[in-house]
């Protein structure tokens, strides 16, 4: 089974590498990092930190964009081109097909995170900005967040059109970054419905702020190992749940 999933993943990665959108977004991400160095020159203090802040922001923003816009077309393209029939006629289950597709895209997204991280490190070294363990931790958790976003895109891609899937994925990503604050604001509400509603939203929707260590990295604040492993574990669990739903939906889907 692993072999079949891996073969599917490699195939998907090869296909994704040919996607021009990936290179366009990667180019803009690198350009925005360079723009950050120009922008930071406007400040007379903390220039190196500002360069890193903008670099982290561009890594996260463009990686999410790649994850969503490439991810939503994963299944749809195969169905549209009718290649899904050929693939599924082979000894490959629908679950293996979907998980393979997901794995392939995650590999590509992580590869471009590595490229951006290398560029980020180069710029930081050139400017004499500090690089430490917290930067690595922040990048690792960004990679986990991206794996989760790709899972969301895969889920929506399994039953709807790319346009709607991208709306849904962006919506969940947006909400995932708001749930903590909404829960905190809701906790002070007089209405029990609002209090419970916001608390449940925080429990059910992905808590994407738990993957955000960019402030800690920028200020070189100490990060406990549990601040990395527990969010990573949470992310892995959440991805498994989303993929399970995606497989359930995909297995019941009629392609005729």
């Amino acid at each position: 089974m692993i072999g079949r999933i891996w073969a599917m993943a490699i195939n998907t990665a090869r296909e994704a590498i040919r996607n021009k959108l990936l290179y366009t977004l990667l180019f803009f991400a690198l350009a925005m990092m360079l723009f950050g160095t120009i922008l930071s020159a406007l400040s007379y203090v903390d220039r190196e930190r500002m360069v890193q802040d903008f670099a982290f922001a561009s890594i996260r923003l463009f990686s999410v964009a790649i994850a969503v816009f490439v991810g939503v077309g994963l299944i749809h393209k195969e169905v549209e081109r009718r290649t899904v029939y050929t693939i599924l006629s082979k000894p490959l289950s629908r679950a293996e097909f979907l998980i393979g597709k997901y794995t392939g895209l995650v590999l590509i997204i992580w590869l471009q995170v590595v490229i951006m991280a290398l560029f980020f490190s180069g710029v930081s070294l050139l400017l004499g900005a500090p690089l430490g363990f917290t930067h690595l931790a922040a990048l690792i958790l960004t990679a986990v967040e991206l794996a989760l976003v790709v899972a969301l895109a895969t889920l929506f891609s399994s039953f709807t059109t790319p346009l709607l899937a991208s709306f849904f994925s962006c919506g969940i990503w947006l909400a995932g970054h708001l749930t903590r604050d909404l829960r905190d604001h809701g906790a002070s509400s007089a209405s029990a419905l609002v209090r419970e509603g916001t608390a449940w939203m925080h429990r059910i929707l992905p808590d994407l702020e738990s993957f955000n260590l960019s402030i800690e990295a920028a200020h070189q604040l100490p990060v406990a190992a549990s601040d990395i492993w527990f969010p990573a574990l949470y992310g892995a669990g959440y991805v498994a749940v989303i993929l399970a739903f995606a497989v359930m939906i995909f297995e019941r889907r009629d392609f005729r």
Binding site: M50, D53, F54, F56, L61, E209, N212, S214
Partner: peptide, 8 residues
């Protein structure tokens, strides 16, 4: 999550 860049 873009707190640092927005603060800058």
């Amino acid at each position: 999550g873009f707190d640092a860049a927005i603060a800058d």
